[in-house]
């Protein structure tokens, strides 16, 4: 390099040879980067088609059930949906329902209208009580047949992942696995019902179990160390208010490494 070609940053112009060289490097970078990014995106795991109707509030009217978690049974002429209620942010609905009941009286078995944000995917629907206690619109008496008990129960051993249904069914993509683990832990710790996702024999579809303890107590804190990992568990499963429920034997949990 001759003296004339020596590069000095504070000079107005850089030497021509530097200029041409840097130009070639930049052109190379501007060609390679899109190719690199395209490969990264192409080989990315696909996202599910779950939805969170962020910014849209919907009013739903149905029969309120308190077990296994707050659920609204919404029926029309063709079908009945059992909609799991969750709170705003990373919280469950139980405390909100408690506050609403303190102000408006017991909701159990009544026809209740809630306003909130719909979350849905894979045949499951949740309603976020976005405005917390203000999400309660109205209620009126309705005669509802009581839950018949555990006559559909069976002992099962399952392998799957514990996740928080709020994120998984629409709020976050992805709402599962290692990168979502901390968020799922926060959500379940905040009272959102833990759900166990179990892959079926077809290798594509899933079954979802709301988790409870042996005595049907909440076990949110107890399952936190196992969230977002593949685990094997045993317990008793049964149907309740449209959901499969697993009365989980906490001592049976095994991490699959």
């Amino acid at each position: 390099m001759s003296q004339e070609e020596f590069y000095i940053g504070w000079q107005d112009e850089m030497p021509l040879s530097n200029k041409q060289f840097i130009k070639r490097i930049l052109i190379g970078i501007f060609i390679l980067i899109p190719l690199f990014l395209m490969y990264v995106v192409l080989f990315q795991k696909p996202f599910n088609h779950h939805h969170f109707e962020f910014g849209t509030l919907t009013e739903l009217t149905g029969i309120y059930h308190g077990d296994p978690y707050p659920i609204l049974e919404v029926s029309d002429e063709d079908s009945t949906e059992f909609i799991l209620l969750v709170g705003f942010g990373k919280f469950g609905a139980e405390e909100i329902i408690y506050d609403i009941q303190n102000e408006h009286g017991a909701l159990l078995g009544e026809e209740v209208t809630f306003r909130g944000t719909l979350i849905y995917g894979d045949g499951v629907t949740l309603l976020e009580l976005t405005d917390q206690e203000e999400s309660f619109v109205s209620s009126k008496d309705k005669e509802v047949e009581p839950f018949e008990g555990l006559d559909n129960s069976e002992s099962v051993s399952l392998t799957g992942e514990i996740l928080d249904p709020k994120c998984y069914f629409g709020v976050m993509k992805p709402g599962e696995g290692k990168i979502h683990k901390s968020c799922a832990i926060r959500c379940i710790s905040g009272g959102i019902p833990p759900v166990m996702r179990v892959l079926q024999d077809d290798g594509e579809s899933y079954e979802y179990y709301l988790l409870k303890g042996k005595e049907e107590e909440n076990i949110n804190k107890e399952v936190l160390p196992y969230v977002a990992e593949t685990i094997s568990v045993s317990g008793i499963s049964f149907y309740q208010n449209g959901w499969k429920v697993l009365k989980l034997d906490l001592e049976s949990i095994e991490r699959n490494k």
């Binding site: 990373k90 926060r186 959500c187």
Partner: peptide
């Protein structure tokens, strides 16, 4: 991943 939860978001980064 950590805000709007039952503990401080930065604490959650280290403890979740």
């Amino acid at each position: 991943f950590h805000a709007l939860g039952d503990i401080n978001a930065v604490v959650s980064v280290f403890t979740s």
